[in-house]
């Protein structure tokens, strides 16, 4: 547990490995998303030129997508326990309206991740699996019959739309709504006040596990 200059505690929220993996996912996803959008709709084709031209992005999109998936798999293993939906999440869902309007106190009693974060994580993971399965049919069209390829396009597009929609919410929450979250994912630590305000149960559990965390 790190110490702040004013003597108060900093709590490690994301160790180095989580941060490296998270930013690998973020970078590869953004690349794959932007190159996918270039092919998705003609008004976005200029993105192809930004990334080196049509043939270049056609070659790299699926390869970088595999890096994205591999990194996501690591996070899946590392966070599986904390992302499990449990009985306390039911209460969070009941207070969804308060969460949206900013009266977070009623739902602050969350574990390491609240239900919103868990839902986002599982939606992203599920769409990644669908993107992989459908993406392979677009990658090697001659290996699949036409019906599968057509289904592939529909599934690839729908899951990309869901994943991008979820990403908009994710970035907005992290960067704009909860100051301190970006620092958690860049420097790895949060303040005790931050933890109490957003993830009180997590803080409590940390403290009972490591008595020296008390101050």
């Amino acid at each position: 547990m790190a110490q702040r200059a004013d003597g108060r505690n900093l709590i490690v929220r994301y160790p180095m490995i989580d941060r490296v993996v998270h930013w690998t996912i973020a970078g590869t996803f953004v690349y794959v998303m932007l190159t996918g959008l270039a092919l998705f709709s003609p008004p976005f084709f200029w993105l192809a030129d930004v990334f080196g031209g049509g043939p270049v992005i056609r070659y790299w999109h699926p390869i970088i997508a595999l890096v994205f998936l591999a990194a996501l798999a690591v996070l899946l293993v590392r966070w599986f326990k904390d992302m499990k939906v449990d009985a306390d999440d039911r209460r969070w869902i009941g207070h969804f309206r308060e969460f949206v309007t900013g009266d977070e106190k009623v739902v602050a009693d969350a574990g390491r991740f609240n239900f919103g974060q868990k839902a986002l994580f599982w939606v992203q993971s599920a769409s990644a699996v669908l993107l992989l399965l459908s993406g392979v049919t677009l990658w090697f069209p001659r290996s699949f019959d036409v019906g599968l390829r057509q289904a592939g396009f529909i599934v690839h597009d729908l899951s990309a739309i869901v994943a991008i929609g979820a990403l908009i919410v994710h970035i907005y929450m992290g960067v704009f709504v909860t100051p301190g979250s970006v620092k958690a994912m860049t420097q790895g630590t949060v303040s005790a006040r931050w933890a109490e305000a957003h993830h009180a149960r997590w803080l409590k559990a940390l403290r009972s596990a490591t008595p020296q965390a008390r101050h």
């Binding site: 949206v100 309007t101 900013g102 977070e104 908009i168 919410v169 907005y172 704009f176 709504v177 909860t178 100051p179 301190g180 303040s191 006040r193 931050w194 305000a197 957003h198």
Partner: peptide, 16 residues
């Protein structure tokens, strides 16, 4: 949607 949400509800500052 997120822009409107920000304008209406704003960030959730933690009083450090």
């Amino acid at each position: 949607g997120v822009v409107l949400h920000y304008l209406r509800y704003g960030p959730r500052e933690v009083d450090e």
